[in-house]
């Protein structure tokens, strides 16, 4: 009787101090099972998936080549023109040109072009996928309930974690880098497209209904135009987040300012790291200011208010 009591006492103590975890072998088999399944999936479909992304690779490579091969003076003119078209601000154009000249003078021109190409393609991809996704999400609360947690995961999961399956599937290269960037950068444009459409004035929507707008007409003549400032805030955030990912992308073989930073980390080159890091910051500031000014111009109609 007394021994029984002692034994139970011991068991309870053990239960409180030791977490009732899976046995070691079970746990190993569990992990192994997942790994093996995914490896099997990779063996089976890896090539197909890689082929599926070939067009993306072709576009990215073509664009990189184009940007790198363009003579630098022409490139500066083109970029200045783009900045002016977007922002209509001479100070910003001048600032951009000076930034480009300094970065180039410090020997980072080609890397900057690679990074610009990656960011441009990634942003374009995020917009092409993200805006329709945001539209779908705005159509029903159920789709919103499904997509929101996925976006939460995409934004919070450490990027190294999703690098693993991407690497297993696609190996090292530009496309996996691009995908990693997009996974991290796409949530804002999706979220803000959804939000922007949901925030459109109910009265205006009712008017569109009353005049017999089809769902499609309503989307293109009322919802999207009125959501545009929000959508653009999303695009701005997407660009910023894509830039934040260039070093991680460099980890899986994307060339550019990020790979130089990585080299600097590995070799403790302070100057190299600082210079490339600041170049990324410079690009970010230019992108940010231009897209913000552009976003403001989209709201021209709300500027002048009748007193």
């Amino acid at each position: 009787m007394s021994t029984d009591n002692a034994e139970t006492g011991l068991n309870i103590k053990e239960l409180l101090t030791e977490f009732p975890e899976m046995s070691r072998t079970e746990l190993r088999d569990f992990k192994k099972g997942i790994d093996e399944t995914f490896k099997g999936f990779t063996r089976e479909y890896g090539e197909g998936i890689e082929n599926f992304f070939d067009p993306l690779l072709a576009i990215l490579v073509w664009f990189e080549k184009l940007v790198v091969a363009t003579p630098w003076p022409l490139m500066i003119v083109i970029l200045a023109a783009l900045v002016y078209a977007g922002a209509r601000s001479w100070p910003l154009v001048i600032g951009t040109v000076i930034t480009l000249l300094i970065v180039g003078y410090l020997g980072m021109w080609e890397d900057m072009m690679f990074t610009l190409a990656l960011i441009s393609v990634a942003t374009a991809l995020c917009i092409i996928i993200g805006i329709p996704l945001g539209i779908i999400m705005s159509k029903s609360d159920r789709t919103q309930a499904v997509i929101t947690p996925v976006l939460d995961i995409m934004q919070t999961i450490p990027s190294f974690v999703y690098l693993i399956p991407i690497l297993m599937l696609l190996g090292i290269g530009k496309v996996p880098g691009l995908i990693a960037v997009c996974i991290y950068a796409i949530p804002p444009v999706v979220r803000l497209t959804n939000l922007g459409i949901r925030l459109v004035d109910k009265d205006v929507l009712e008017a569109a209904d009353a005049f017999g707008a089809s769902p499609r007409q309503k989307l293109f003549t009322v919802q999207l135009p009125l959501a545009l400032p929000n959508i653009f805030a999303g695009v701005n955030q997407t660009i910023m987040m894509a830039l934040a990912m260039v070093v991680v992308a460099a980890l899986i073989g994307v060339q550019g300012l990020g790979s130089e930073v990585l080299k600097a980390v590995n070799n403790q080159y302070l100057a190299l790291g600082l210079m490339n890091g600041l170049a990324i910051v410079a690009i970010a500031i230019v992108f940010d200011r231009v897209s913000q000014k552009f976003g403001k111009r989209l709201q021209k109609h709300s500027e002048v208010v009748h007193g």
């Binding site: 004035d201 009265d203 205006v204 009712e206 008017a207 209904d209 009353a210 005049f211 017999g212 089809s214 003549t221 009322v222 135009p225 009125l226 545009l228 109609h301 709300s302």
Partner: peptide, 22 residues
Amino acid sequence: LQEFRRHKTAMVFQKFALLPHR
């Protein structure tokens, strides 16, 4: 209904409900 709304009715609203971007 869509055709009916387009061709047979027109509506004026208390809060105007104009399209602010146009």
